[in-house]
């Protein structure tokens, strides 16, 4: 599902021209729209310690290069590649490796018998649209908390694929991981969030 864009800047060409002209509202708009996902990507690639610095440098490079931006891709994609490249160079300099397995807990083995059949009973969740369910502040804060506890690579994969609708091959390029690894990251992130929502449903 894609986010609604600000009606002032629905035309990306206009937004870019306004940025080049130094329009304050255009800057506030792009920073509020893209800073968080840029941070997510930087954290996934280079880790928390250097992510803020990498994003700051990416913004400065992007704004300086903006007059030469040929718009062969969306502004968002272009920004994500700039931050991704900056983070990858930083990784090379710092010699840092991020493990795909960081913080992963599968479905506990005690939920299955020796033949692999479930021994717990999985009941349907309370029905309702996501919007109706999220009207409950407690669920919203459970999701927020659970999301923030995920390893950075899982957060980045989930944000790009499920929340921003970015295509799989683009995510592979940005994070520099294979499609099968992105699928593993998505599976783990969704499974962890499912556990949190399931506990909330059980305790209601």
């Amino acid at each position: 599902m894609k986010k609604k864009s600000n009606s002032l800047f629905e035309d990306e060409r206009t937004l870019i021209l306004k940025l080049i002209d130094g329009d304050q509202s255009a800057f506030e708009y792009v920073v509020s729209e893209y800073h968080n996902i840029m941070l997510s990507i930087a954290r996934a690639i280079v880790g928390d310690a250097f992510a803020d610095e990498v994003v700051q440098e990416a913004w400065i490079s992007a704004i300086k290069a903006l007059p030469k931006f040929e718009q062969r891709s969306k502004l968002k994609t272009w920004l994500l590649h700039i931050v991704s490249n900056g983070a990858k160079s930083r990784v090379r300099r710092e010699n840092r490796m991020v493990s795909l397995d960081e913080g992963w807990e599968s479905v506990p083995a005690d939920k299955f018998d020796h033949t692999g059949h479930r021994i717990d009973n999985v009941s349907p969740w309370e029905e309702g649209t996501p919007e109706a369910l999220l009207a409950n502040d407690q669920l919203q804060s459970i999701i927020e908390h659970s999301f923030q506890q995920l390893p950075a690579l899982q957060r980045a994969a989930l944000t790009m694929y499920d929340m921003e609708g970015i295509k799989m091959d683009e995510i592979c390029n940005i994070l520099d991981v294979s499609a099968s690894n992105v699928r593993v990251l998505l599976h783990r992130a969704r499974t962890t969030l499912h556990h949190s929502i399931d506990k909330y449903q059980d305790n209601k």
Binding site: E28, W125, I143, F147, R190
Partner: peptide, 28 residues
């Protein structure tokens, strides 16, 4: 069905990275 609902709920909820950046100052 629960996993499908999880995806819908998370997509609608749009949780964010923890971030203490002053976005207005950065924009300026």
């Amino acid at each position: 069905q629960q996993i499908r609902s999880t995806i819908s709920i998370v997509t609608t909820s749009q949780p964010k990275e923890k971030d203490s950046t002053d976005l207005k100052a950065l924009a300026q």
